[in-house]
């Protein structure tokens, strides 16, 4: 059996027998392995969890952080919820759009970076919050955007 399979079994062992609690960690693992939750990724996860692919698919589509479409190697998530928006998150995301030459929700042509507008990231006191590959940057302003993009491996 594959390493992925073994890893999932190790996760399953942390939860009561027969529970499906390993579903989220396993899907996350599959996503790390494949880049996104492709049909194959979902089928592998389902097999390792002993559930149907439809079950995994159903769960995956519920959660924002699980991607059912290909995404860039890196993700930039810009919080656009109220506290950040009150402090100008719109200008920050516009700065990312022009820096990357794409709209929110899109991936750069070279497949490197996906830019997304997201809901509250839990850093409201330090608006605008931007998560680059899930690492938070606080108090981002339009002016600091080029620096952030430049700091990404292979960034444009």
């Amino acid at each position: 059996m594959s390493r992925f399979h073994d890893e999932v079994q190790a996760i399953r062992a942390r939860y009561p027998e027969g529970s499906r609690s390993a579903a989220l960690p396993a899907l996350r693992l599959a996503q790390e392995k494949h880049g996104w939750l492709s049909r194959q990724a979902i089928e592998e996860t389902a097999e390792a969890l002993d559930v149907t692919p439809a079950f995994c698919y159903s769960v995956a589509t519920f959660y924002d952080m699980l991607h059912l479409e290909p995404v860039g190697k890196h993700t930039i998530d810009v919080c656009t919820n109220l506290p950040c928006a009150l402090c100008g998150a719109q200008r920050v995301i516009e700065a990312f759009e022009s820096e990357l030459g794409i709209h929110a929700g899109e991936t750069t042509e070279d497949g490197e970076i996906t830019l997304r507008a997201v809901e509250c990231l839990g850093g409201c006191g330090y608006a605008t919050v931007v998560a680059v590959d899930d690492r938070y940057h606080h108090s981002v302003r339009a002016e600091t955007v080029p620096e952030i993009v430049g700091g990404i491996d292979g960034g444009t």
Partner: peptide, 14 residues
């Protein structure tokens, strides 16, 4: 101050 009202583009519509 909210002009533009950006909201997540990904609306879980897979």
């Amino acid at each position: 101050s909210l002009e533009g009202i950006f909201a997540p583009s990904d609306q879980h519509a897979h």
